[in-house]
Write a protein that binds this DNA or RNA. Sequence first.
RNA 1: GCCCCGGUAGCCCAAUGGCAGAGGCAGAGGACUUAAAAUCCUCCAAGUGUGGGUUCGACCCCCACCCGGGGCACCA
Length: 824
Amino acid sequence: MQERDSYDIQAVQEKWLPVWDEIAPFRSGRPDDKRPKKYVLDMFPYPSGDLHMGHAEAYALGDVIARYWVQKGFNVMHPIGWDAFGLPAENAAIKRGVDPAAWTYENIAVQKASMRRYACSFDWDRTFNTCDPEYYKWNQWIFLKLYEKGLAYRKDSAVNWCPSCQTVLANEQVVAGLCERCDTQVTKKKLNQWYFKITDYADRLLDDMEQLEGKWPEKVLTMQRNWIGRSTGANVQFAIEGRSEPVTIYTTRPDTLFGATFFVVAADSALAEELATRSTPEVASKFAHYLESVKSASDIDRLATDRPKTGLFLERYAINPVNGEKLPIWASDYVLADYGTGAIMAVPAHDQRDLDFALAMKLPVRVVVETGEEDPTLTGVATSGDGNLINSGALNGLTKEKAIAAIIKQLESDGLGKAARNYRLRDWLISRQRYWGTPIPIVHCAKCGEVPVPESELPVKLPPAGSLDLSPKGKSPLGAASNWINVPCPRCGASAQRDADTMDTFVDSSWYFLRYASPNESARAFNDEDVKTWLPVDQYVGGVTHAILHLLYSRFFTKALHDMGLLDFTEPFTRLLNQGMVVMAGSAMSKSRGNLVRLSDELGNHGVDAIRLTMVFAGPPEDDVDWADVSPSGSVKFLSRAWRLAGDVTSPPGVDFSKGDSALRRATHKALHDGAFAVESFRFNVAVARMMELVNATRKAIDSGCGPADPAVREATEAVAIMLSLVAPFTAEEMWERLGHTPSVALAGWPTVDPTLVKAESVTAVVQINGKIKTRIDIDPEITDAQFEELALADPSVREALTGKNIIKVIARAPKLVNIVIQG
RNA sequence: GCCCCGGUAGCCCAAUGGCAGAGGCAGAGGACUUAAAAUCCUCCAAGUGUGGGUUCGACCCCCACCCGGGGCACCA
């Protein structure tokens, strides 16, 4: 037999694609499917071009998981779609004059074809794109539901503004205080915008993370906790001289109230403006000046860590409610207008920022907690430790914790304050002055105000881009579509205007995982029965770049929809796996760096299977893959080695494995057992190593062991094909066929592991004396500690070593080792 | 500055507190070949970032520090 010792990679790829199209091994089961369900989800891609190395890694990993559960007998839903709205489509339109829709759908077609060639195990019957009107109709519907519940609202607020581009910028588009596009200094501009009230859910978003503990990467949970940033403390009312209303401040350290020596209001707050205006004319004029300088301070300055404190004394006073002291009121930009109440009591002895300010402005410092540290006035370092309270009236002698409880109780009974919480989390600004997004389904009427578009009129479709000028002008291009924007008010019929803004594309991705359950449902956003069947997502796979926003928004949507009675669960993603990035020689790939590795080149050079294998084998999935450190040609070599086994097997399909060579059978069952365990623990690189071991063992058995006709060789080779189908589907399919089976190997099923074969027949155990290895003995793995100890002590070399020595202690850990501790 | 995750052969990475090595890359030697490629076989190498501690026993647990990566950073 003169077989070629390798196979034609490209030909094999072409051969199987149409077969798989026909079999559709990954079409999710029908409702009467008896297999248990599993929902495996990859984060859907943005169609900005063809797939790249990052996609190749992510989808290879997601595929291992999806294909594994199929082999394990689960009814797996593994869908894909496109996050198709967004700026790149519009930028392409502006730059090259193409239609954003046409550009987007073309890219989707390219990516879809590439995914098929990459052998992604997606259920192709469930795809959709967020820019399809059939999808964004339900964005609008959800918006209206949130609006009904008071969770969508409009307000004026200061947003990032580029004076040169004349547009609002997302935070991500502001790089070091400059517009990422033109390097102009970004300023703030007050605009009326739509928000989702995610802050209503702050506590639940935080507390429900307990359910995710151990199932999501700890890193992501930490980032979300930081982002939500809950703090506990108290709100305290301070009377203001010459003002009828008191001002409430928020503090996390109400125990230090007696240490307050001044009072600060955010320079850009309405309160500062009011206090200054009603002060002396000099102060009012100085304040106007100061405010101007604050506003023009760039984010670069603001972000500087040791930026000197600035501020202005307003010549007004607040009264400390606990001791009646007059505290001078200052305006400063180190207090934020949109956190807490925009006003604070300053306790310089125990807060570094307040101390910095006090030292700069020569304000007094009063220590009220004895922490044993040095005097803050001398060291310039505020003390934050625990200790007994001093200079604090009734609180004297109490610890920090007890003092906080006591003062809150006191304030509450005096009606001057109460316990309070605050969050770093802000409401979610969803308005975008852009064309390629979901239109906000609101009509503005001079008489009726904001009027929701009736559900029966959804979707509010985007007008064709054709005649619109999409270049950023600071207001939505949709405003110029006069046929579109001018509509009768749904309530009174008078002429009115549609809201010209579109939604943040994060809205689209906040519920797409629900839509996959019933992608063609036309009467509802999602079908309850199907959602009950499939959701929540059992396994979510995606990059850590979405650790905060996308995942937080999706969790928020899920909870809000749950509260509307539309879902019966509160967390959308049961388990989460973050894959790393693909980098080149230590740095992120980019065209400008000249280190870009093209996926199409790699696929052409090594084939799909080898690239997938390389991605999976490179290391733990959450680590970055450095393309300079991996060897796709090594992967090709291994795959050929595996493939060659299939050609060497001479026993017929269906042969009774039980009579096969027992050593190889043990190796096979151990590989199946350990490989499955590794996959379930996301240690895919280890699973591949197990496959390599089995291939090596089988090779050896064929060449210099039991020979190619032994049934164990067939069993081992079939196991290799099945395990390999998770990673290298073309090679696995080819092997399966050579072994005399019909496609698809993807549906072959994970062989049942025989527990008696997983255990070794005998193991080599170690006998130590005082922790040093004395000898090795072969034992039965089932041996008890006592038997093991007896055997060890009976060993001649051990006996010799123990002659005349005192045995203090014997530690037996069957079937691993015995350690004999002796005197001396 | 604070928090998290890493540091194991030349390289990428494995090791429920129990023989430091599973797998791969690179390297060396050999078999096959007229030769090379491919293939097959064999070999090579670190005592686990540093210093302490706990333990019969530590890559693993604890403390301090060094290095690398990531997150947060006027949120009162």
